[in-house]
Design a protein around this nucleic acid. Structure first.
Length: 876
RNA sequence: GCCCGGGUGGCGGAACUGGUAGACGCUACGGACUUAAAAUCCGUUGACCUGAAAGGGUCGUGCCGGUUCAAUUCCGGCCCCGGGCACCA
């Protein structure tokens, strides 16, 4: 008999959790050791940015991972669940500015605090593999791989556009630009072209796209988003030769190259449009002051695609002309703000009749609209006048001379062939994906390992000089990169000629850090190499868990980086993440007041009380003054809306198990989760109920093993529910990852156990089995309380080392089944039949039901549909 | 603007492959226990109609339309909310 069995004390989460955590630590339960004889399971959650304190999103993320990891462990897998820190980034520099503390100090303090917080959640993490990306031991390999990519031509330098704050004389992130102005200075932001390093992710575009089909265990929506992001489109590249007048003006021959996926509409092109950055725009602006001013203005606008796409369409004629490659017609060239320099050729042929954007532009500037596609049911042109909108669907060519009457693909093929024979066009594949610009004009990141020499130019730092260590005592003040003022960092010798030279001060995008950390966890202590042979054992990650907001960039960069390392012979792996779960965000209510000055003051929901307003709704009141506040609905927990909930308070009061249970029960993992104080209470109450159920049962003395043959009907029914619940929970945890329904099923079972008679020895045996299985099923979710209750139920061996139970096939067998009977699709009755009753018998029983007969009446039965084991539908 | 999701009682959600809409939890209300409160336990809780009651019926899954014996689920069109849009991570 266990030492705990007679303790009917109140459930005290702090004591229970401390005890369980101590046991796991003392026994090194989560230390992952390579063992080729065992199946491994690598369970990884996206590592956190050490922002200061854990937020509820972290709790949700890491609880999901821990539940899956613990379940897999019980299934017998050799589980690895590591943790690290995405430690470089902008917030550390902001904190430095706000508090005058070095980013390194701030970051490391945050890591220490957040590590303790994670440990208090009882996560089964192998802390011996912990890493932080701001450690030279880690980022030296960013530098090393950068140099390998440079050698292979997969890193190159070209100019890129950045946001420039003219007052602070610094580059701003998109996030730091608010309504076109710098967040600190309020100055109107300019665009600047500066040299930057790029990674040639486009070289892998085809493979990254095609391999999406192999990711069967990724959410469909993520694969779709990635496919659309890569954006492969087959089309035709068309040359519009310069018109004679333009040749004179330009002093050169040539053609305007455009890319189009709608070559079938070529005969409807009435003008061409180029981006403000296009060479033709630059050339035309040289002799045209107002055009130069317009081009300048366009270049000043936002770099963000959302802004460009929603901006009012504006343009100006360049005065230059090109000739239509087939008809020879003279077409004007316009500069338009809706043409992106970064896609295709930075120039488009405009077909206003068949493209929404061209249509809007042509209507505004009174450019001709020429219809060349008719709908399949008739000529569109007849019904569309006067023009209301573009007809952008595929259709049949018309007004296109020799190309009339063709369907989309035939028209594209014929026109492409005609262009090709004239040397004015060719079929081509275009990707939307752009190369990855990794240069950041910021301090707190991986230094780019390049030295600038007056004689030799940009020279790679030799491997033996790695890492290029970032000085850690800088405190950014918002005016540019502080590395530029650090002589001890800047000054160096040129590795090629030995003359004095200057170090590159740009650092790498933090997405570089997160593109391979999952590989490093396999061998975090490797000093000689970036990765070693242990990667072969642990990778791929069997289950990756993180926020849906990373669906594109982080996951795509990681897939790219893994392939780069594969092609360098460093790993034997195409895809890093076998199975992906994208968790939803955590939301909470938003409350605010408008102050006299018109500013909005947000109040944390913990300072608010909702009162009934007597009209079926509620009024929100601020606790300190009792006065009403505005309710702003619900939104993601954020600092700016002041609606975050500190999980630490919850852990300190109701315990980690309650926090874990609440986040797992309240919503399925992929959906958004709404915070609710009452819901948290409900989770806590359930733990108390199960605590009490176990102790009450045990206080009745020892229960013998179940003897299936001796059970009465009620005991059989309860036992069947026990094993049905086990079947469901196994599936919910293992395949579906719907932890909410798994918990609901266990709750139902506890309700059934609490209702069941508990006097006879056979009753107590069935209840003992039910409670044991419930504790085993709950142990991945609320491991601390289960650690204790397992002992209370009389077991010496800790539950962490128990295997996942198997349902008893005999217990699952039922002799009868309830069948639903519908008449014309509406529920009219239920009949109970033998579980193995043949269809004819089920059908007869259904038709014999009193209520069914009432609804059938004297109407003729037209059809009877029998769904085996489920329902009968009588159609009259 | 483009790409991807989501919308079900008073609330969070369940219904897994087209087959009983509302499991489970919360809230609210009623009751038990208590000097009292908290806690705990028991019961009721989609709307409407009907019945003394037991019960029975109609409607109902954002809106409009379609397919089907049967639609929260599939198809077409719309509305609203959330995520991403390349320098937040």
């Amino acid at each position: 008999m266990s030492e705990y069995s007679h303790s009917l004390a109140e459930y005290n989460p702090q004591a229970v959790e401390a005890e369980a955590q101590r046991w796991w630590t003392d026994h090194e339960c989560f230390r992952a050791v390579e063992d080729p004889a065992r199946d491994k399971f690598y369970c990884l959650c996206m590592f956190p940015y050490p922002s200061g304190r854990l937020h509820m999103g972290h709790v949700r993320n890491y609880t999901i991972g821990d539940v899956i990891a613990r379940h897999q462990r019980m299934l017998g897998r050799n589980v690895l669940q590591p943790m690290g820190w995405d430690a470089f980034g902008l917030p550390a520099e902001n904190a430095a500015m706000a508090r005058g503390v070095a980013p390194a100090t701030w970051t490391r303090d945050n890591i220490a605090y957040m590590r303790r917080q994670l440990q208090s959640l009882g996560l089964g993490i192998d802390w011996s593999r912990e890493l932080a990306t701001c450690e030279p031991e880690y980022y030296r390999w960013n530098q090393w791989l950068f140099l390998r990519l440079l050698e292979k031509g997969l890193v190159y330098q070209t100019t890129g556009t950045v946001n420039w704050d003219p007052l602070d004389q610094t580059v701003l992130a998109n996030e730091q630009v608010i309504d076109g102005r710098g967040w600190r200075t309020g100055a109107v932001i300019e665009k600047r072209e500066i040299p930057m390093y790029y990674m040639r992710i486009t070289a892998y575009a085809d493979e990254l796209l095609e391999a999406l089909d192999t990711l069967a265990d990724w959410p469909e929506r993520v694969r779709l988003m990635q496919a659309n992001w890569i954006g492969r489109s087959a089309g035709v590249e068309i040359d519009f030769p310069f018109h004679s007048s333009t040749r004179e003006a330009m002093g050169a021959d040539g053609a305007l190259k455009v890319f189009t996926t709608r070559a079938d509409t070529l005969q409807g092109a009435t003008y061409c449009a180029v981006a403000a950055e296009h060479p033709l725009a630059t050339a035309a602006a040289r002799s045209n002051l107002s055009l130069a001013a317009f081009v300048d203005e366009c270049k000043r606008g936002s770099v963000m695609e959302a802004d460009v796409a929603t901006a009012e369409k504006r343009g100006m004629a360049t005065g230059l002309h090109v000739t239509h490659p087939l008809s020879g017609a003279r077409l004007p060239v316009w500069v338009a703000n809706y043409v992106l320099m970064g896609y295709g050729e930075g120039a488009v042929m405009a077909v206003p009749a068949h493209d929404e954007r061209d249509f809007e532009f042509a209507t505004k500037y009174q450019l001709p609209i020429r219809c060349v596609i008719g709908s399949k049911t008739g000529a569109y042109a007849d019904t569309a006048a006067p023009w209301q909108a573009a007809y952008a669907e595929h259709g049949i060519t018309m007004n296109s001379g020799a190309f009339d009457g063709l369907e989309f693909q035939a028209a594209v093929d014929a026109i492409a062939a005609a262009l090709e024979s004239k040397g004015l066009g060719r079929k081509r594949v275009q990707f939307r994906l752009r190369d990855w610009g990794i240069s950041r004009q910021r301090y707190w990141g991986t230094p780019i390992p390049i030295v600038h020499c007056e004689s030799c130019g940009a020279v790679p730092v030799p491997d033996e000089q790695l890492p290029v260590v970032l000085p850690e005592d800088c405190i950014p003040d918002g005016s540019g990169n502080p590395l530029r003022n650090r002589d001890d960092f800047l000054r160096c010798e040129c590795p090629t000629c030995g003359k004095p030279a200057r170090r590159e001060t740009d650092t790498m995008d933090t997405f570089v850090d997160s593109s391979w950390y999952f590989l490093r966890f396999a061998c975090a202590d490797s000093h000689e190499a970036m990765v070693d042979e242990r990667v072969r054992y642990w990778l791929p990650v069997d289950q990756y868990i993180g926020g849906i907001e990373h669906a594109i960039l982080h996951l795509l960069y990681s897939r790219f980086w893994t392939r780069v390392m594969r092609d360098l012979g460093l790993v034997d792996l195409d895809e890093p993440f076998a199975r992906l779960l994208t968790q939803g965000m955590v939301l909470n209510g938003i409350y605010y007041r408008k102050t006299a000055s018109g500013r909005i003051a947000y109040y944390n929901p913990t300072e608010i009380e909702e009162h009934d307003d007597g009209k079926g709704g509620t009024t929100a009141v601020l606790l300190v003054d009792g006065q009403p506040v505005e309710s702003g609905g619900i939104g993601t927990m954020s600092k700016s809306k002041n609606n975050g909930v500190d999980p630490q308070t919850l852990v300190d009061t109701l315990g980690a198990d309650t926090a874990r249970l609440f986040t797992m029960f309240t919503a399925p993992p992929e959906q958004t989760l709404e915070w609710s104080d009452e819901g948290v209470q409900g989770a806590s109450r359930f733990l108390k109920r199960i605590w009490k159920a176990v102790h009450t049962h045990v206080s009745g003395g020892a229960a013998g093993p179940v003897a299936p043959a001796d059970l009465n009907e009620g005991q059989k029914v309860l036992r069947r529910q026990v094993h049905q619940t086990l079947v469901k929970v196994s599936d919910d945890l293992g395949r579906r990852h719907t932890f909410n329904t798994a918990i609901a099923a266990v709750m139902e079972l506890l309700n059934a156990v609490n209702r069941a008679p508990a006097l006879a020895p056979a009753d107590r045996s069935v209840i003992q089995e039910a409670l044991e299985l419930m504790i085993l099923m709950l142990s991945p979710i609320v491991p601390h309380i289960c650690h204790r209750l397992w002992h209370v139920l009389g077991h010496e061996v800790a539950i962490i080392d128990q295997p996942w139970p198997r349902p008893d096939a005999d217990a699952l067998k039922a002799e009868t089944r309830e069948i639903v009977v519908q008449v014309n699709g509406k529920l009219r009755g239920r009949v109970t039949v033998a579980a193995d009753a043949p269809e004819a018998e089920v059908r007869a029983a259904a038709l014999a039901d009193g209520n069914v007969q009432r609804f059938v009446g004297d109407q003729a039965v037209r059809k009877v549909i029998v769904v085996p084991g489920k329902l009968v539908n009588v159609v009259v």
